[in-house]
Amino acid sequence: MPEPFKVLTSQTVVLPQKSIDTDQIIPARFLTTTTREGLGKSAFYDWRYKADGKPLAGVELNTVDAESHRVLVAGDNFACGSSREHAPWALLDYGFRAVVSTTIADIFTSNALKNGLLPIQVDKETHEKLLARPGAEVTIDLENNELRFGNHVVGFKVEPFARRCLLEGVDNLGWMVDRIVAVETFERENGLESA
C-alpha cells in the first residue's frame, strides 16, 4: 500500500539528460534482490560511484539533502526501457516522491503510481523553466492537479483512478479482488474455466 499523496512542497534535483532509461535508474546487477527495500543506495549507481565503489566527486545525487529534495526533474522520455519496478522502488527509497518530465514511459508511469511516486508530464516551456532552476522550490498539489513554482501555476493530468488511489489511499489489488465475481462470470461465459 503506497503512502497517500496530497500536497508536496519540496526542492528539485535536475537531471537534464534525455531518455534516462531504467538501467541508469538502477543497473541490472542490483536486481537479484527478492525484496523491495533498500534500493535507494543503488539508485543511479553508475552515475554516483567509481568502479571501486567510492563516490564520484561533484555528483549532486551524492551530496544533496534527499529529505528536502523530493522532486526529480528529468529530461524528455524519462524511464524508458526495462519494466523493472525496482526503478520506482529505488527512486522512492532514495527519497523522491515525484518526477517531472515532458514524457515519461508507459510502464514506469504505471509502476510509479502503484507505489506512490507521482509522475507528472508538463509542457516543453514549463519543463525548460524547471530544468534551468535546479533546487527550485515547487509545490505539487494533487488535490487541485497543479504544479506551482515561483509565480507559475501549471495544471497536470493523472489517470483519474490512480489519482483517487493516491489521494484516498484506495488499494488497487483490493479493488480488483472485490470484483472477482465479474471475472468468474467472464471465464464461464467464454469457456476459460480451469480444466
Binding site: E85, I107, L173
Partner: peptide
C-alpha cells in the same frame, strides 16, 4: 506486453489487469 511487479501480483491474484486502451 510487459508489466511491473505490482501487476504481476494483480495477475497472480485475479488473472486480470487494470488497463486503459492504448
Amino acid at each position: 506486453f510487459g508489466i511491473g511487479t505490482s501487476e504481476v501480483g494483480h495477475v497472480l491474484a485475479t488473472q486480470c489487469l487494470l488497463q486503459r486502451k492504448p
